[in-house]
């Protein structure tokens, strides 16, 4: 499938050309891929419970957008957020520990796969109600303007979320109140088993911003450099001009909706076709052509990352469960709260 880009020149001039930057993008994407593959394995071994949604296939969208942010910028995401959390700088060990439900996890085992969080990395959470986080992201945007600081908020959600009221309420006030937000729609073409064209009257999501007179772009979400380039522009717009925007990244999840999805609603050929445009392989090829990467380096990086992920699993395995006496901890903040 060829994704028609909105930004006419988005392929012609890459934001990043130097080896270090490209290598960082490459490593980050590979880390998410290997992390998620390991997560699937651990789920099948029943080390991980509940619902578990993987980012495999969406790495370029995740890394291309989040790498454009500072540590102090805010990211809000959904239940499909392991990759977002890692890209925002959370230690994979703490993410894996959370999936294992351990006290050392990002949310001390209280949240699980769908509710990762980090104040330190301003990863403001995984939310499991479709569309719910967009209004909350607007609140961080309002706080930034209120305090007159220069952070930016990125609110990431699926194509399915663009049909829910909260999406429209959020775009409206973001524009009305000049909130420094980049809304990122991870259009992976399906909401569970329902294809975009069976759920949305408008299948090019970027167009939905037109109703709010908001800047919007559509980009090939399998091309990390294109995603990064356009995100840089939109983030700058938010930071400097306090103008929100909507970025539609067209991508694909290689696996089912969640680990329990038998994936019967789409053809195997479709999946295979998208895999030919794999974001990690593509960047690798691009870098090799530029003589910035060799096959030996690729192999070495993969080994490093694979062992980093092994370490995360080891850490999670060896971490303690939460203490039963702490069941009620943090229902309320503050002393004497009951």
């Amino acid at each position: 499938m060829k994704v028609e880009q909105r930004a006419a020149d988005s392929k012609s001039k890459e934001a990043l050309t130097d080896k270090t930057s490209l290598l960082n993008l490459y490593r980050e994407m590979l880390l998410i891929r290997r992390f998620e593959e390991k997560t699937a394995e651990m789920y099948q071994l029943a080390k991980i419970g509940g619902f578990c949604h993987l980012n495999i296939g969406e790495e370029a969208t995740i890394v291309g957008t989040i790498s454009a942010l500072r540590r102090t910028d805010y990211v809000y995401s959904t239940y499909r957020e392991h990759g977002h959390a890692i890209a925002k700088g959370i230690d994979p060990k703490a993410v894996m520990a959370e999936l294992f439900g351990k006290e050392t996890g990002t949310s001390h085992g209280r949240g699980g796969s769908m509710h990762l969080f980090s104040e330190e990395n301003r990863f403001y959470g995984g939310y499991a109600i479709v569309g719910e986080a967009l209004p909350i992201a607007c609140g961080s945007g309002y706080a930034i303007n209120y305090k007159e600081t220069d952070e930016v908020v990125m609110s990431s959600f699926g194509d399915g979320a663009t049909n829910i009221g909260a999406f429209h309420e959020s775009l409206n006030v973001a524009k009305l109140w000049h909130l420094p937000i980049v809304f990122v729609c991870v259009n992976n073409l399906y909401g569970m088993g329902t294809a975009v064209n069976r759920a949305s009257a408008v299948t090019e999501i970027w167009k939905k911003a037109c109703a709010y007179d908001m800047t919007s772009e559509r980009v090939d979400g399998m091309d990390v450099l294109a995603v990064r380039r356009i995100t840089d522009q939109l983030v700058a717009r938010a930071r400097e001009k306090h103008e929100p925007s909507l970025l539609e990244c067209v991508t694909y999840r290689y696996r089912g909706h969640s680990m329990s999805d038998p994936d019967t609603y789409r053809g195997k050929d479709e999946i295979k076709e998208w895999q030919t445009r794999d974001p990690i392989l593509s960047l690798g090829e691009h870098m090799k052509k530029q003589k910035l990467l060799t096959d030996e380096e690729i192999e070495r990086i993969d080994e490093e990352i694979t062992s980093q992920v092994e370490d995360a699993v080891k850490f999670a395995e060896e971490s303690p469960d939460p203490d039963p006496k702490d069941l009620y901890r943090d229902v309320y903040a503050g002393e004497g709260a009951a």
Binding site: Y74, Y124, E132, L134, P135, I136, A137, C138, G139, S140, G141, Y142, A143, I144, Y146, K147, G165, A166, E169, S170, N172, V173
Partner: peptide, 17 residues
């Protein structure tokens, strides 16, 4: 837009207001 009112309040509260 009630969802926005409460949602904005929540996000602002988490962000220090």
């Amino acid at each position: 837009a009630e969802e926005i009112i409460i949602g904005t309040a929540i996000g602002a509260a988490m962000s220090g207001l």
